[in-house]
Amino acid sequence: MQLIRRNRNTTPDLGGLERLQRELSDFFDWTTSAYPTPFRTFGLLEGAWSPALDLYEDKDSLRVVVELPGLKKDEFEATVHGDTLVIQGERKSESEQKKENFYRVERIYGQFHRAVTLPTPVDASKVKASYKDGVLEVILPKKEETKPKQIPVTIQSE
């Protein structure tokens, strides 16, 4: 089962020790500060941008929702491979494009790849996707034969 697959993409500018120090320091700031910052492991353990993903199911379809803030249309794609939905792309680092002074870089850049094993077969030709307010929503209609059907039961009396 490959519900969560993460790729490797470390933050480029910090070595492991410096990163550990920063994370510890961030953690104490985080627990005591009136100005909390997001607490997350900056690539120390996983080293990846792994966008948050929800999967919902109703009787007709599956629905996958992925947070992908600030992407352009050509920076990501969603594909169905059999029973797997793959969402992948890349957010280009702005620091490479603009020579400006950064005080904080908490947004994560680079490649991402999520693969979701779909719990029921879907009709790949009818999949619809939309992107709004930084959220990708993919609707995958179930295949006809997997939808619940009411089976009339006749009781035969002997």
Binding site: P38, G70, K98, E100, R107, D133, G134
Partner: peptide
């Protein structure tokens, strides 16, 4: 609350803050 990740940068005449808040209506 969720604390949104931010980038903060400085130009000659501005401080620019970008905050990720996906799924929020303007």
């Amino acid at each position: 609350f969720i604390v949104p990740p931010v980038n903060v940068r400085e130009t000659a005449d501005q401080i620019i803050v970008e905050a990720e808040m996906p799924g929020i209506d303007k």
